[in-house]
Design a protein around this nucleic acid. Structure first.
Lengths: 258, 258
DNA sequence: TTTAACTTACTGACATGTAAGTAACTGTGC
DNA sequence: GCACAGTTACTTACATGTCAGTAAGTTAAA
């Protein structure tokens, strides 16, 4: 489970998109000003800009090294301040990580609404578009891949975030797939299909990071998505690969029937 | 890419299997003795036992915390010695990690042959069996999931190991799938299928670690494997999920045709 | 004058690796 | 069979480096 878009319209998927100030954690005063449509003061604008710089630097460092080995001094250097300055803004390293994840999600913060999300069958296209975009942003892909796997370790600050994000994404996919294929499949079949789709996207990312030239993420995800949707829509089960493999082994099948 | 069996016969997949001394790194003298079929001395037997204890402890600690945050003092405590004792045996923390990975693989070490590997179409069954076994060994699954994702970070000592292991596994799967489905599919189609299969297994592991009750690893892997093999064997492409989703969105399709 | 955005300096904790020392095992010579 | 030297498996103590977080101070904006 990494950066394969939970539905935020082109937000989570596209780091090249200019981030609006909405996505940078605001102080209560800033949020109040924003809610009242007051233009931010020069200092407030500067603060938002600096925080965004820190968040981007943190993404880069956590992607390159993971959370555990990603040092605040490195984040600070990339953001152009000292590590104590980073802590002034985010309170702690853990607070910084949480802010990075929320920032990437374009998640609602106090007083500011989150980005509108893609819903319905268009979400399948959105996923494919996200995978395509991901091939142009190795940094983001790596950040999510590393952080999501790290998050399963004991006491990792991002564990609840990733668990919640994954549960939410799977639930959303179940609804989307049902809408696309109809009411034929059981709840378990839909759930397994959603899990499989997420798994393919996540699993390909690590392969792609280790061997980019040999892995076609968009093509492979699309193929698997097509197969999964077609099987559910048609109501037919694919024959057992294990049985086929055994038949080939026994010489009863010459490997592929046309 | 985690512990989904690269073909070592029930070795990599089953930590409950009693490990023979073959899998514990031997000194040159021990290897020579073993090669000459000399019974090991009392001290040599004791050393192997202690090293194995350290390796198991290291797997546990690296699984629980990752390599970067997994401390030698923790490994030592679980193994019943001091961290300096661990370093006496393995030279360095990095050396310990490498030994853990080789130990898990049952890899050949000087003077000792590796375990025989599953080849041909039986490998597909072996994969399914491995996924089933993995549901009984959360620790091993977590260790590989965390280490494989960590390995994409800069300078990680296990990066070459996982890259090599993944490339080898994909190549092997390409041959196995070709043998099962025949010569119809192109090389790219076979490669994409192999990548997809590996991705599903790897991707499901992180989901399962975060939400074990909601994810059916064996059932989902089997379904996707069946679909992938059937599509390649039949030579037919599944219709586009994107097109179908758009049709549902436009009201031209009521969601699933039966 | 107050507040916020930093910086500098420091502290405590943690971690890896090394050196010196101890105890136990092994092999050899008598 | 025993003594002794050599080797190995550790332990203890230490050195060094890294890191996150805090306190006090400075500067600029409001």
């Amino acid at each position: 489970m990494s950066d394969h878009a939970d539905g935020t319209a082109d937000q989570a998927a596209s780091p090249t998109t200019t981030f609006s100030e909405q996505n940078v954690p605001l102080t209560a005063e800033q949020a109040a000003n924003h809610a009242q449509k007051k233009p931010p003061s020069k200092q407030q604008a500067r603060t938002l800009e600096r925080r965004e710089a820190v968040l981007k630097a943190a993404m880069s460092v956590f992607g390159a090294h993971g959370y555990n080995k990603g040092a605040l001094v490195e984040v600070a250097q990339q953001a152009g301040m000292t590590h104590a300055g980073v802590l002034h803004h985010f309170g702690s390293k853990e607070g910084l990580l949480v802010a990075v994840l929320r920032y990437r999600d374009g998640e609602a913060v106090d007083g500011v609404q989150g980005m509108p999300q893609v819903v319905g069958p268009a979400f399948l296209s959105h996923l494919l578009d996200t995978v395509e975009l991901n091939t142009q942003q190795r940094g983001v892909v790596q950040t999510y891949a590393v952080l999501s796997a790290e998050s399963v370790t004991e006491g990792h600050p991002a564990q609840e975030y990733f668990r919640g994000r994954m549960v939410g994404l799977r639930a959303k996919l179940v609804e989307v797939i049902r809408e696309v294929v109809g009411d034929g499949p059981s709840e378990k079949e839909l759930n397994d299909a959603a899990s499989a789709l997420i798994a393919v996207m996540d699993g390909l990312q690590v392969q792609w990071l280790l061997d980019p030239d040999a892995v076609d993420m968009p093509g492979t995800v699309e193929l698997v998505m097509n197969e999964i949707i077609e099987r559910l829509a048609s109501g037919h089960e694919a024959p057992s690969a294990r049985v086929r493999a055994t038949a080939v082994l026994d010489g009863r099948v010459d490997g592929g029937e046309h």
